[in-house]
C-alpha cells in the first residue's frame, strides 16, 4: 500500500491510496490530476509526466534509468536533482508514502 500525494504549484494537494502495484503516472491519470499530461501513456516518449520528488522521499525510489535521465534533460519546466518522470515511478510495497510536486508546465 502506498499513500501518494500530488502537490500542485499553487499549493493544492491531492492524496490517494493505492493497493496494487502501479505507477505514479497511472494514479495521476485515473484520478484526473491536472498538471500531469503523460501524453505517451508511460512509453518514455514524451516527458510530459515530469514531477519533483520531495527531498525526504528521494531515498525511497531506485535511481532513474539511462533513458529516463536522457529524457529528463529536456523537460519543459526547470530540471532539478529531484526531477523524475512519474511513469517510471513504480509504487508497490517498497514505498509506503510519497510526495510528488508538480512543475509549472509540461510543455
Amino acid at each position: 500500500m502506498t499513500v501518494i500525494t500530488f502537490a500542485g504549484p499553487s499549493g493544492k494537494r491531492q492524496e490517494f491510496v493505492t493497493e496494487e502495484t502501479t505507477t505514479a503516472m497511472t494514479v495521476a491519470r485515473l484520478n484526473g490530476v491536472s498538471g500531469i499530461e503523460a501524453e505517451c501513456g508511460g512509453s518514455l516518449s514524451c516527458a510530459t509526466c515530469h514531477v519533483y520528488v520531495a527531498e525526504s522521499d528521494v531515498h525511497k525510489l531506485p535511481p532513474a534509468s539511462e533513458d529516463e535521465l536522457e529524457m529528463l534533460e529536456l523537460v519543459a519546466a526547470e530540471r532539478r536533482p529531484t526531477s523524475r518522470l512519474c511513469c517510471q515511478i513504480v509504487l508497490g510495497d517498497n514505498v509506503d508514502s510519497l510526495v510528488l510536486e508538480l512543475p509549472e508546465t509540461q510543455f
Partner: peptide, 12 residues
C-alpha cells in the same frame, strides 16, 4: 532508435 534524447531535441 533507442535515442530518446535525440528525439526530444529534434522535436524542438
Amino acid at each position: 532508435v533507442n535515442m530518446p534524447a535525440d528525439h526530444m531535441v529534434a522535436r524542438r
